[in-house]
């Protein structure tokens, strides 16, 4: 960029472009919120934002894992199915007259997520099968196992202790939102400040040169699917706790909203470029659209049209951004 040129007249235009390029999604988000608060007086209330954040937490957590995967040029279609199986396994442990502690239940659910993510990662990294195919297979396998696990029936009567992670409040903030915030911070830190984080970008940017520079690309690819599996499991816990029962049909098509959040947030599907803060804003945009249109009483059919339009617009923005640089 020409930012070294001191003439203010020349400087202002690239700066605006710069601003749009780096913060386009933030500006879009602010504009969207501005419009919604102008047309609906309930939008900008604390209670409504508690709703939006709570409703965004599950997709937000899935999208964090998805960002890692997409940064390595991969994709994870199995998040919704892993979410459901993990929720059901946990559900089976924290129900009944003598439920296990929430800690044991959650741990088991997260382990299910990690295990399935590891299978994805192993096949992608070791056997070099396309991620799309591997995770498409897992989408079906994990969903089928979810139905087998409890004969397609939901598991109800989850212990109060467990439901706290979905329904509880701490200092006026819903627990799912706190979990999202902590998860975001941890994975934001890892991506930004650790060697592993840099490797994730390197693998997606140029796998061959990453390899020649000594990075164990297989290990990195394996790890991102484990992360995605773990976070799918975590999201499954929250969903089960929120709906007070583990539902085998939970999370169907959730991979699409997670991918949408990542893409709207500016992460490139061809890997190597993107940020977690972008993803978070992407997830919030989806949450805000759904919430805003519900508040205004707009049919859910329009919600789908609008969401789809924004996804494509975001990718167009991304493409024009690449052309510039």
């Amino acid at each position: 960029m020409n930012s070294t040129i001191s003439s203010p007249a020349i400087q202002s235009r690239p700066q605006l472009a710069h601003l749009l390029r780096d913060y386009g999604i933030v500006i879009a988000f602010v504009v969207l919120c501005g419009v919604l608060s102008a047309v609906n007086e309930n939008f900008l209330t604390w209670g409504n934002w508690v709703n939006i954040l709570r409703q965004t937490s599950i997709n937000g957590i899935l999208a964090i894992g998805m960002t890692y995967v997409i940064l390595t040029k991969g994709i994870d279609l199995s998040v919704g199915s892993i979410l459901a199986l993990s929720g059901l396994v946990t559900g089976s442990l924290v129900t009944g007259s003598e439920p296990h502690s929430a800690f044991v239940g959650i741990l088991a659910g997260l382990l299910v997520g990690i295990a399935l993510g590891a299978i994805n990662g192993l096949i992608v990294a070791r056997l070099s099968v396309a991620p799309f195919v591997v995770t498409l297979g897992m989408l079906s396998v994990a969903r089928g196992m979810t139905f087998i696990y409890n004969d397609g029936m939901p598991i109800a009567n989850l212990s109060k202790e467990f439901r706290f992670i979905g329904q509880g409040m701490v200092g006026g903030i819903p627990v799912p939102v706190i979990i999202l915030a902590i998860t975001f911070f941890i994975f934001w830190f890892i991506l930004k400040y650790t060697t592993f984080g840099r490797y994730v970008y390197a693998v997606g940017g140029n796998e061959r040169s990453a390899k020649t520079s000594g990075i164990s690309t297989r290990w990195v690819v394996f790890a991102v699917y484990v992360i995605s599996g773990l976070l799918s499991g975590l999201a499954g816990q929250i969903l089960a706790a929120r709906t007070t029962s583990a539902l085998p049909q939970a999370g169907i098509a959730y991979e699409l909203d997670a991918i949408a959040a990542v893409v709207i947030g500016g992460t490139s599907l061809s890997g190597g470029v993107g940020t977690l803060s972008g993803t978070l804003i992407g997830a919030l945009i989806i949450g805000v659209i759904n919430n805003g249109l519900d508040l205004m009483g707009v049919s859910s059919y329009y919600q789908q049209v609008i969401k789809g339009t924004i996804i494509v617009a975001a990718v167009l923005l991304d493409a024009s951004r690449k052309k510039q640089s």
């Binding site: 709570r54 409703q55 929120r242 709906t243 519900d294 508040l295």
Partner: peptide, 12 residues
């Protein structure tokens, strides 16, 4: 669940 949360806000 989400829809009802939003309605409870819109029609508090």
């Amino acid at each position: 669940l989400s829809l009802m949360e939003n309605w409870l806000t819109a029609h508090a």
